[in-house]
Design a protein around this nucleic acid. Structure first.
Lengths: 147, 147
DNA sequence: TCCCGTCAGTTTATTTTCTGGACGGACCAT
DNA sequence: ATGGTCCGTCCAGAAAATAAACTGACGGGA
């Protein structure tokens, strides 16, 4: 199987991974959620070649995860913002952050804290069942073909 | 920045991505959660070269996400099972699945359904705040340095 | 005993990706 | 004029990912 074939697989993981399953793509998305929007800012924060930044931003834009918004004329310059589809990736990023916090944070604690504006507390994400509202863990899930 | 440097970054996303942020690694993890355990099975399901399988399984084992368990002698053969640390990735995989379900499922609906054994319903994951229990969305989160 | 099949890798050669640097174009400030 | 900012593109060489073939340890027939 080739990378490009992933998008055609009858599997939501494969289809998602075809879009976001790339090291630098995930790093770019992290920065998007931290408010980074400009080409130069991505490049500077990641310290990788401009070619990759350009390529990944283009890909994410084509997939509708980001959109280019002009922020000035003369010359026209664009910044990259998360679309609603992009914002839907928030649980993915938060889940990754939380796993990192649990397993790779030093004694100093996690590098970043997240505050829930609604309640005002620092929190970590808890995955719950859409039907009963209880927390879900891996062993309580049974998977079967949907179609 | 190089790929190996990611693990040293003061960022939980970077540290996690250093471990799981690879297309095939994520596909292997998907299969792990579906109960796949043997080298040949991973290879057959993914249809990619054995080198990649061997490499990724080794990496995940070194990182403590999988562990090798002998399932026979003569010759000794091992299977790969998720450790507790690996099971902790369940929310990450579920979040990815759900994003794919939302944005890439056809009219036929999602390819896989997930049943919550505790309540018996088909469900999708909802990310909630550990403190107040309410659902969290991207706009309700404020991030700041933790150390 | 000899050939086949299973399973889990490793080796080798090729293909793809990435880097680092230079370049371009459209401006603005001094 | 000269230098600075910003967003890219282009190119050649270096590095990494990958496919395909191979190894090796066994078990099972014929």
């Amino acid at each position: 199987m080739k990378w490009e074939d992933l998008a055609q697989e009858p599997c939501s993981v494969a289809r998602s991974v075809a879009v976001i399953g790339d090291r630098w793509t995930l790093m770019i998305l992290r920065d998007c959620f931290l408010g980074v929007r400009r080409f130069e800012a991505f490049q500077e924060r990641l310290g990788i070649s401009r070619t990759i930044i350009a390529d990944r931003l283009k890909h994410l834009t084509e997939e509708g995860v980001l959109r280019r918004v002009a922020y000035q004329e003369h010359p026209v310059r664009h910044e990259y913002r998360l679309t609603d589809k992009g914002l839907d990736l928030h649980p993915v990023v938060m889940a990754i952050v939380h796993w990192g916090d649990r397993h790779y944070a030093g004694e100093a604690g996690p590098p970043l804290l997240h505050r829930h504006k609604t309640c005002g507390c620092d929190f970590h994400p808890v995955q719950t069942c859409s039907e009963c509202g209880e927390p879900v863990d891996a062993r309580a899930v049974e998977t079967r073909p949907g179609l």
